[in-house]
Every structure is written in C-alpha cells, then in structure tokens.
Amino acid sequence: MNAEETFQSHSSLANAASEYLSEQLEEAGIGSRAAIGVSSLPGNAPVEIQLVAGVSL
C-alpha cells in the first residue's frame, strides 16, 4: 500500500480485502496474504495486489 509515513492500519485494509474474497468465493477465497506499506509504488498507484487463483473445469 502506498501510505503516508504515519499510517499504521495496513492489516485493517488487508482484512477488508480478505473478507470480500471470503464473501464472494466462500472457502475458496481463503488463503495467505501479506500487507506491506511503502512510500511509493510504480505509476503512483495507491495499492498493488498479487493474487494466485485456480480454476476448476
């Protein structure tokens, strides 16, 4: 997350993302995660998300 120096609620934002995925994908949406704050991201993006997903056919 692109955050100001004093911001300390990274895990709260990650919790919201985890809750959303759990609601949308049920048990399949539960997995590992990381919340990391940095002073900048490429393109001045506010957040970078990495997601690993599997598809059942």
Score class of each variant (00 low, 15 high):
15 N>W: 07
10 H>G: 04
16 A>V: 13
42 P>N: 05
12 S>F: 10
24 Q>P: 04
11 S>V: 10
21 L>V: 05
27 E>W: 04
52 V>N: 12
51 L>M: 13
51 L>W: 02
23 E>C: 15
22 S>H: 06
56 S>A: 15
12 S>Q: 13
20 Y>L: 12
13 L>W: 09
24 Q>V: 10
23 E>N: 14
23 E>D: 15
2 N>Y: 02
39 S>R: 07
35 A>M: 05
13 L>F: 11
45 A>S: 07
55 V>I: 14
18 S>K: 02
24 Q>E: 15
42 P>A: 00
22 S>V: 00
3 A>L: 07
13 L>V: 14
56 S>I: 12
57 L>C: 09
28 A>H: 09
6 T>Y: 04
1 M>Y: 03
53 A>R: 05
57 L>D: 09
32 S>P: 08
52 V>H: 08
33 R>H: 10
10 H>D: 00
30 I>V: 14
15 N>S: 14
38 V>T: 13
39 S>D: 12
23 E>P: 02
2 N>H: 09
3 A>Y: 01
54 G>T: 04
27 E>N: 13
57 L>T: 08
35 A>P: 00
33 R>N: 04
20 Y>P: 00
11 S>E: 14
35 A>C: 10
22 S>T: 12
18 S>H: 05
10 H>F: 03
25 L>N: 06
8 Q>F: 08
33 R>M: 08
9 S>W: 14
55 V>A: 07
48 E>A: 09
23 E>L: 13
2 N>S: 08
9 S>D: 12
43 G>D: 03
47 V>S: 06
18 S>A: 15
29 G>C: 05
51 L>I: 13
21 L>C: 12
34 A>H: 08
46 P>V: 03
